[in-house]
């Protein structure tokens, strides 16, 4: 759906995007993860046609009126009603779009006749999503759609995005990695303007960060860690208060060898199990 080639953007001396080759598969919910200032908004701005690339190419397999964009903090003329905002988007994109249907989907049926100047931040965000989907877009570009919302507002917007799966290709940027992990099936990690990884989420979780085991102990952790570090299948051991995190070359080693190794180190084990693989850990491993 989206393919960029050697895409770069420079603001004076600052290189905001550096040789980005983005590939967003049709029908995917693609999460663009990165810290604040990583270049996510610039990249989405270029894809949306709101900014010009310094060099490189962008190919989008959808006509402009079937591409919808949602800014991180949508604002509209405050004297318009919610329904008028969506009606305007509908008229410009798909006159057959169901205005009241998308407002209902966004939970704004009761507020739709009110002027948007009185809307809360969460309501504006949901109105932005409603205005984006009323044109039945083939591609949705969402820039940090939930980052600045309170937990309830975030939940509502994430649910709304999750419901879009199967109806459109979604490119969703966020610095909140939990949101990306929850909603997206494909991930791109942007760091200092460079795309460090892109591919299926599972591939990133397994590939970028090796398997690790969490061990809770009674008593000091350091002597046990020392004993474990001697084993060739242990890549690293991190210690905390009565806690160890053991990196292993493969889960099979941990399953077969770790109980014995702990017993041999006279460790008083309270519990142990594989550490849950999170996007956050994979992200940190990639961008460290």
């Amino acid at each position: 759906m989206i393919a960029t080639t050697a895409l770069s953007k420079r603001y004076g001396e600052h290189l905001a995007l550096d040789d980005v080759a983005l590939r967003v598969p049709e029908g995917s919910v693609y999460g663009l993860a990165g810290r604040n200032g990583a270049g996510k908004t610039t990249l989405i701005g270029i894809l949306a046609g709101l900014r010009r690339a310094t060099s490189g190419e962008v190919r989008i397999d959808a006509p402009p009126e079937r591409v919808a964009v949602l800014a991180d903090a949508p604002r509209f003329d405050p004297w318009l009603t919610g329904r008028e905002v969506v009606a305007l988007a509908q008229q410009l994109t798909d006159p057959a779009g169901d205005i009241d249907g998308v407002l209902d989907q966004a939970g704004l049926t009761e507020a739709k006749t009110r002027r948007v100047g009185g809307y809360s931040r969460g309501m504006l965000q949901r109105l932005g999503v409603a205005a984006a989907i009323v044109g039945r877009p083939r591609l949705l570009l969402l820039d940090e759609p939930a980052s600045a919302l309170d937990p309830q507002g975030r939940r509502e917007v994430l649910d709304l995005i999750a419901r879009l799966r199967g109806t459109a290709t979604v490119l969703f940027s966020s610095h909140i990695l939990g949101d990306v992990q929850e909603v997206c099936d494909t991930v791109g990690v942007l760091d200092h303007g460079r795309l460090r990884f892109q591919g299926p989420l599972d591939e990133l979780l397994v590939g970028a960060a090796g398997p690790r085991y969490e061990v809770r102990l009674r008593g000091p952790a350091e002597p046990v860690a020392e004993a474990l570090r001697r084993h060739p299948w242990v890549t690293h051991v991190e210690t905390g208060p009565e806690r160890l995190t053991v990196g292993v070359t493969a889960m099979e080693y941990a399953e077969a060898e770790l109980p014995g190794a702990l017993a041999a180190a006279d460790a008083l084990v309270v519990s142990f199990g594989p550490e849950e693989l999170t996007l956050e850990r994979a992200f940190l491993a990639l961008t460290r």
């Binding site: 046609g49 709101l50 402009p64 009126e65 964009v69 800014a71 988007a89 205005a131 044109g135």
Partner: peptide, 14 residues
């Protein structure tokens, strides 16, 4: 004047 409104409109017209 409201950049977000500008973006809203600009991204919906050719």
């Amino acid at each position: 004047a409201i950049p977000e409104m500008g973006a809203f409109l600009r991204t919906r017209v050719r």
